[in-house]
């Protein structure tokens, strides 16, 4: 497990300054699972404060490994993370999830993104340590009338909203969202993504959104990266490309 030296600490706290150095700087990040399988290989990526970045790619392209490599694995998962993922000059690659969390990185995982046995209100209480009052109004208004419901009984869209709501209440500087659109109706995806973008902009939270749905991702993001076989194969500005063209590119890069 490489703990690597610290890199330059240039990002200014909380500012959305485009011209400042990156908030998160990922270099040579590799993720190797306990069974020897490689998840991500020497990935380089950067995110400026307040910027929204989409990571696109097919199933198994290494997108989730990248997010988890940044957010950290539990020691019992026996996963090796090498390389650098520095936030404010502190390398969190290969550290445990708590370390990343304390540096303002919050991950909303792809599956099991809520605690099925806890109620919505309990999720908000769990996320209340950043100073948000548990009873404060939800940024996702739909959750208000669901406060007493168990998260296990929520619909897919409601779960996603709850996960994002709780994540934002932890005051992240960098929010990692894994496949938020997966399994949701197109109308729901559109609504959820635009709300996510609004909240992130309001609070100038940087976001890395891993997506298979290129159209949804490009509406959300400022920039994009495309991954294949564990590596970043291209990147660019979201406004410069069309979703159809981009999707054709990464779905077309079949061996």
């Amino acid at each position: 497990m490489t703990r690597g030296g610290s890199t330059r600490g240039s990002a200014r706290e909380g500012s959305a300054a485009q011209e400042a150095g990156p908030l998160l700087d990922v270099r040579d990040l590799s993720v190797t699972y306990g069974n020897g399988a490689s998840g991500a290989e020497q990935v380089a990526l950067s995110v400026r404060a307040g910027e929204i970045v989409a990571v696109l790619g097919r199933n198994g392209a290494g997108k989730t490994s990248l997010l988890r490599g940044i957010a950290g694995f539990l020691p019992s998962e026996h996963t090796r993370v090498a390389g650098v993922a520095s936030i404010d000059g502190v390398n969190v690659a290969g550290r445990d999830p708590g370390q990343s969390f304390r540096h303002g990185i919050v991950l909303v995982p792809e599956r099991n993104k809520v605690f099925s046995s806890l109620t919505v209100a309990e999720h908000l209480r769990l996320a209340a340590r950043a100073g948000h009052h548990p009873d404060a109004p939800c940024a996702f208004e739909a959750l208000e009338r669901l406060r007493t419901r168990r998260a296990g009984l929520l619909s897919g869209g409601e779960r996603q909203m709850l996960a994002l709501e709780a994540a934002f209440r932890n005051e992240p500087r960098l929010l990692l969202v894994d496949e938020a659109s997966l399994g949701l109706a197109p109308v729901m995806v559109k609504e959820l993504m635009s709300r996510l973008k609004e909240i992130a902009r309001e609070r100038s939270t940087a976001v890395i959104a891993v997506e298979q749905d290129a159209a949804a991702a490009l509406r959300l993001a400022d920039r994009y990266y495309v991954m294949n076989h564990g590596r970043v194969v291209s990147d660019g500005l979201a406004r410069d490309v069309s979703a159809v063209g981009l999707a054709a590119e990464y779905l077309g890069t079949v061996r």
Binding site: L74, V106, L107, E122, N170
Partner: peptide, 24 residues
């Protein structure tokens, strides 16, 4: 109690608890 809530969160999903800032 808050400790109990964190314990139930860990019981339900330790990985997610870690990503939610709970010291697992």
């Amino acid at each position: 109690t808050p400790v109990g809530l964190r314990m139930r969160a860990v019981a339900n999903n330790p990985q997610l608890a870690a990503y939610s800032g709970v010291r697992v």
